[in-house]
Simulated assay, not measured.
Amino acid sequence: MLVDSHCHLDFPEFEPQRDDVIARAREAGVGHMVTISTRIRKFPSAVLPIAERYPEVTCSIGTHPHYASEERGIPLPDILAYTRHPRVVAIGEAGLDYFYDKSAREDQQTVFRKHIAAARQTGLPLVIHTRDAEEDTAAILTEEMAKGPFKALLHCYTSGRALAEAALELGLFISFSGILTFPKSGELRELAASVPLDRLLVETDSPYLAPPPYRGKTNEPSFVRFTAKVLAETKGVSEAEMERATTENFFRLFAKAKVAAAQVGDGAT
């Protein structure tokens, strides 16, 4: 079984075909998917109903850095309240995006730290988005980890070696998406080869970043297998070993998701 640790099943690209997308994921051996929150205010109506409907799907709660200014005022207790739902297995995605700068950097940092606090208090893993903000991301993670431990992963990793090494030193996991499979991603594959096998996850970040042979089309969870295949080749292990490792790593990090998956195995809905 493979796990798609990061997808956006609430996005409009999936609206007319969500049942078929989930069915294709099952057929491809993708046994679990996490649909990731980008706006807390839309979570109850957009994200949570999907996780409640499909047994193989769980979700996160959080604010993407693009919307940090919009949701800066949401208090930490409100985030914590949502985490009590049995289908909520992670915090985020939250972090820093200095490439688009759609929210003020101060707001991004404030919201990022608030989500770290939520991860620390709940024990749920924080899903981190970072783009063109390596130094500030590493600094905040280091400062916050010194205040008390929390679990986290850097999703859809495309940053440099310095941030990867800092994150691994802090005990974080690193997830790779379809970008790893792109022809021009040689440097990223070299970096992925250096990440310990027990810290790796795979994801689609769908509906974006479809890997070959679907490049340019709508990405979906079933395509995570193509990323896992290239990651296995990059690490010099078999596809079966990569499947086993990334799935075990996922359930070790997303411990609450393991409970949800067990319920599916027992026939619960």
Rank of each mutant, 00 (worst) to 15 (best):
L9F: 09
E56M: 14
R215P: 06
G186A: 13
D10T: 05
A262Q: 14
V264S: 06
V224S: 07
P213H: 02
F150R: 10
V30S: 02
R199E: 03
P207H: 03
V30H: 01
S69P: 06
S238Y: 10
L2I: 11
Q263C: 07
L201T: 03
R131M: 03
E241M: 06
P221I: 09
E56C: 11
R131P: 12
E52T: 09
V3Y: 00
A260L: 08
G148K: 11
V57C: 04
L200T: 01
P49H: 13
K102C: 04
S194K: 15
H129E: 12
T204M: 08
A261C: 05
A90Q: 06
A133I: 03
K235P: 04
D101S: 15
P211H: 01
R39A: 12
T130E: 10
A117W: 05
D198E: 15
M145Q: 13
P221M: 09
E56D: 14
C156A: 14
K114S: 11
R72Q: 10
E203P: 02
I179R: 10
A152Q: 08
S177E: 08
A81S: 13
V264Q: 10
S238P: 06
H155K: 12
L163F: 03
I22Y: 02
E187Y: 07
P149Y: 06
T142C: 08
I179V: 15
D20R: 15
E243P: 04
A146Q: 15
A164G: 01
P211T: 06
F99K: 13
P77W: 01
G92M: 10
S159T: 06
F182N: 07
T83A: 13
G62Y: 01
A118Q: 12
Q121M: 15
H64G: 13
A257T: 07
G62C: 08
F176H: 05
Y157T: 08
R120F: 06
F254I: 00
F14I: 05
I36A: 03
L48D: 03
R26G: 02
H115F: 00
A232S: 11
L126S: 04
A257H: 01
G186S: 11
P207V: 05
V88G: 01
L209K: 08
E241T: 13
L191Q: 11
P212A: 10
R105H: 15
L80M: 10
V88Y: 00
T218K: 12
M1L: 08
A23E: 15
M1N: 04
R72A: 14
L124M: 11
V34N: 01
H6W: 01
A119Q: 09
A192F: 03
A193C: 05
F176K: 05
F182W: 02
V30N: 02
A193M: 05
T247M: 04
E144S: 02
T137P: 10
A260P: 06
